[in-house]
Nucleic acid binder design. Sequence first.
RNA 1: UGGGGUGUCGCCAAGCGGCAAGGCACCGGGUUUUGAUCCCGGCAUUCGCAGGUUCGAAUCCUGCCACCCCAGCCA
Length: 553
Amino acid sequence: MDERNTSNFLQAIVTEDLASGRVTEVKTRFPPEPNGYLHLGHAKSISVNFDLAERYGGRCNLRFDDTNPGKESQEYIDAIQADIRWLGYVWDGNVKYASSYFQQLYEWAVYLVNQGHAYVCDLSPEEARDYRGTLTLSGRNSPYRQRSVAENLDLLQRMQAGEFDEGAKVLRAKIDMSSPNMNLRDPILYRIRKVPHHQTGHDWVIYPTYDFAHGQEDAIEGITHSICTLEFEDHRPLYDWLLEHLPVPSKPRQYEFGRLNPSYTVTSKRKLRRLVDDGVVSGWDDPRMPTVCGMRRRGYTPTAIRRFCDMIGTTRSDGVVDIAMLEFAIREDLNENAVRGMCVLDPLKIVLTDYPEQQVEELRAPRHPSRGDLGERLLPFTRELFIDAADFREEANKKYKRLVLGKRVRLRNAYVIEADELVRDDSGNMTEVRAHIVPDTLGKDPADGIKAKGVIHWVSATHGRRAEVRLYDRLFSHEAPDRGQGDFLEHLNPDSLQVIAEAWIEPSLAEVVSEQHVQFEREGYFVADRHDSRADKPVFNRTIGLRDTWSKG
RNA sequence: UGGGGUGUCGCCAAGCGGCAAGGCACCGGGUUUUGAUCCCGGCAUUCGCAGGUUCGAAUCCUGCCACCCCAGCCA
């Protein structure tokens, strides 16, 4: 998407392929299996594929790799498309499905049988495992390996006709049971699955495996560069073998890159599903989830996610990427684009004893400190205000730049005030702070030369509005929750969500629309929850706090 | 003990025989009505280790070491 990164190995390959004439255009594809929601790792894969094509004026397909109907559903197909669109990517033409190539794939299976390169095997899953050998021990030929072409053809046709039970027979490629590469030990091409398919219904009872489908799908679509993650590297010899032995219309090539492992989270579909099923989070789009829909609800933007993918680069080494990079990317985007506003999370009442009871001044403030194009907002200033309880102390050292009894502080976008008296209730709790305005300090420093120690935010106690604020933090407190032997749920951060039912927001913030991003000054970036926020009851999710160099010291 | 990969600053990552980019993080300092932003500065005599080739190596060769992936009728 942008050229800030210098280069990567895929660009080098494409550049070379274009220069040598191996390809005349670049065609990639993003091939998700519709069996779960997209997460950050997928976002990187999407970025790699779409951005590579775009960079060279090529195109990228969206193809659902739906060869295992038992685990897939339309729900995921719809959600995945929505996520990709939200990220801002546009796939070439119509959405593609592996399932729409089932007939062609079947014909190619027959072709392989006719060439003597595939056979029907009756070994049970257990027997097959035994015959396959181990990493260090060669496998043995299946006793069914020498069946005649005619018998194989008959059996395959009957498999397809539904004559056999699941697991009773499979179609295997006849390659080499002694290969050190397990994928070449007569890999399974077709298996029997008597379940309806979300796209093809009851048309088929045999389904191609990933290995028999993927390369051929790429060939059918004219994919020039088939990019996948490192764990498929060992499959490449098989990918190539099939393309060489089949009359395919084109010869795509597979390249692998290192999968993204963000710190402080998990990205395996199994673990994400566990978080949802165990009720650890509220759903796939819980703002703490690293899913695309979760990040969206949290307030991450497509710009930030794509920028992050660009920042981390694409290589063949796999490591853990510091999630702080993602946090940097979202702060960078929101600092530039989010309007500002004030919100008091933990209210402490301030009474300005020298300010008339009924008086209301409408103070003007910019919506953004450096972007005049975003306009201004009005801040009603009144005798009674709320400030955050953490912004007041009876006494404090010089490092504390907020309100202290007997000292001054600047109310953001308003006056400098001086605290006179702290009022407590019978049980000793602070109920209010009585203060007065230092005269003529709107937009200027005190005439007496005694400057305010700092600036704090506030909201009118009489004109402010209530809002629910959800403070999200990292879901896990461990850098790599799924590393090591314990269960990854042991590393959950118990404080990943704190709900503030009644926070106070300035009136201008009550008008936010769903998914609007805003910076609560001195607090962080928030977004109006796309599901729960309503005009009469705004709900904000904290996307990320402001960078805080003070609390660290 | 089989095969396939990867090893450059705490993290990500350029580099492709000519003498270590950049980003994140971190640490200073300046500006500031957000302890934010912004700005300036610091941050690998060294490239997993050991040999070798060369005038010269992170880049070439050899040997080690570490880590990751592969024994689903998952993808």
